[in-house]
Write a protein that binds this DNA or RNA. Sequence first.
DNA 1: CCTTAAACGAGACGGTACGTCCTGTCTTCGT
DNA 2: ACGAAGACAGGACGTACCGTCTCGTTTAAGG
Lengths: 199, 199, 199, 199
Amino acid sequence: MPNSRRPDETRRSERSRQAILTATRELISEVGYGKVSIEAIAARAGVGKQTIYRWWPSRGAVIFDSFLELSLDAGGEGMALPDTGDLEADLKLVMRATAAEFADPEFERPVRALNAEIVNDPGLAAQYREKLARPVDEAKKARLRSAQRAGQLAADADLDLVLEVLYAPLFQRWLHRSGPLTAEYADALVDAALRAFRP
Amino acid sequence: MPNSRRPDETRRSERSRQAILTATRELISEVGYGKVSIEAIAARAGVGKQTIYRWWPSRGAVIFDSFLELSLDAGGEGMALPDTGDLEADLKLVMRATAAEFADPEFERPVRALNAEIVNDPGLAAQYREKLARPVDEAKKARLRSAQRAGQLAADADLDLVLEVLYAPLFQRWLHRSGPLTAEYADALVDAALRAFRP
Amino acid sequence: MPNSRRPDETRRSERSRQAILTATRELISEVGYGKVSIEAIAARAGVGKQTIYRWWPSRGAVIFDSFLELSLDAGGEGMALPDTGDLEADLKLVMRATAAEFADPEFERPVRALNAEIVNDPGLAAQYREKLARPVDEAKKARLRSAQRAGQLAADADLDLVLEVLYAPLFQRWLHRSGPLTAEYADALVDAALRAFRP
Amino acid sequence: MPNSRRPDETRRSERSRQAILTATRELISEVGYGKVSIEAIAARAGVGKQTIYRWWPSRGAVIFDSFLELSLDAGGEGMALPDTGDLEADLKLVMRATAAEFADPEFERPVRALNAEIVNDPGLAAQYREKLARPVDEAKKARLRSAQRAGQLAADADLDLVLEVLYAPLFQRWLHRSGPLTAEYADALVDAALRAFRP
DNA sequence: CCTTAAACGAGACGGTACGTCCTGTCTTCGT
DNA sequence: ACGAAGACAGGACGTACCGTCTCGTTTAAGG
């Protein structure tokens, strides 16, 4: 008997849902992650607390969905990386952009909020991988496959591993604030990865 | 007027300090990071709340110190990696051990607790880098320098970068639970890093 | 604009009405007056909340009607007190029965519930007097009038006052739990009242 | 093991206690009994909710104590009824005053609030009898004993019963709003009681 | 007989209050 | 004098109900 007594999705108020997700995003930006309470979200959204508890199991889930909403608006389906035929140039472009994004304070607060929730919530982490990380990773892997066909990358390279070698150092530096996220650093990561996985 | 009314370190009760740090470690292991409150620590340690607030500025700081205590007991100063002369073999040994450690549930909970605190607290992150990460990283870099002298690693390689390429993918996989931390995976990371930074 | 949008009595579902009143009585007996909520009544009766709000203005009104229902079943119209010709004996019989009834726990909970509602709701109090108290009082007064004709009671006695002197002490003792409701006590009240109002 | 973990009376803040009881009295007068919530009391008193829950087990208990406070201020110890030697005159004076008091709207709301709480809470009812009713009743009984010595009241009369016959009808009329509380009514009750219990 | 409008069950909604837990500060008391 | 014990104001938690408001679904009257 799965889902006994789950609320009826069809009766859900889209207006409330949007108000909640918007209020959540605003609050994270304004007061910072630590002070985003369910009570504050409900008050700002003009919504009863129960309406939040009815549809989300935890504060983390609300925060997550407030992100998902944005990324669906932004990325959508047709996400693709540049493909000029020059893998190194294309990757450096993308990695420099990623480094710049991480350095943007506007971007920083919500992403740290999301990561803080993910660290201790396996379910949320799974959702993160499926709904947010995978689509982006697939776009990146598509570019890498193109490079394999062009002979710029080892044909037998494990693309997940390639992505990790490229991005994980950047992510870790950002998360632990263990060093500056410069363009030079982005380039150095691309160089290292290409040396490791050239044909 | 600097430090007006700062507690007098010399009068600090070592007994209370130990009881607090031990209680913190126990609580993280038993009830999980989210439920570790100052009140619970004080109760478990048989200590007044004020004694905690007097010596630590935040919950994160207590958690951090409870770690530091452990690592000082364990690592101490004379931390060193194996050096058989075979860099690849030595690194694979260490990386496999690291992967195994990350997979150990006993180890997992406290480390996740620590990371959750670090993500949103720059001061704590700095302490983490200085007191916990650096000693370990220095030991690793000592081994890499030995490899450079032996001609097994590019002499001009940025050792911080080498460490990141080696460890960040593992760390990210663990943090986001995005894949299994097997011995094969550890080996693959070592192989990739050595390809990227061979002489 | 009288009665705009008043529900149509003729279409009222008798089945729902009965289910609601029965559920109310059951809940008062089972969980006690304080925990009888509209929501609980609706759930127990298998009825929508709106069906309750459509026909009753307040929780007190539902509780009141659940009583009224019972008393109509029981008393009906032809309620009469024994009349053997001996007023003292007849009154002691009735008063002892009343005292016993008040002492019955089965009887107690619902009557306390009703009184709690009445204390702070004048409208409900009026209904109580009209629908529940008056019929009973009229029957009692009929017996007293018979006694006046038989010369056992002062012809000019205010019968409402006589009833109050008889019953109010019993009621107050029960309400405030200020003493035992024994047969002796019932007799003493009858003796006092008869002394006060003998011809 | 009685009283395990009961709060320490000696550390209690008298300031908070007074603020709570005062706020409670004000709220009952202003918004009426039904809308006096713990939350409203705490807000008005400038007190945390926990400080209320720490010292009182229920809303009723707070309301009760807010009364007790008043009556201690007012009545104190030296409460006594007039004793001119003329029992009938003295009683009529007191009964008329009581009837007038009951008719005063200022007096009415809080007393109804108290009675509503008492009806369904035996513990509170016991406190009411001990702390509020008994001192008053003792003063009344002292006057009646004086009358017995003066030969104005049967020497063997049960004084509790006399008090009930005198006061319960008044109380019941007021509680159920079943009739006007006039001076004539007060006199009639005194007359009836004196007839019932004259020597 | 078939329409049609109501009453119905269900339950989501914006809210209020609940009673609990914890925060960070302040006070008391015993050692 | 120090430190355990814990009361305090405050604030958020997650739950229970409030009374209102749709939703489809009976259901019974009247055209």
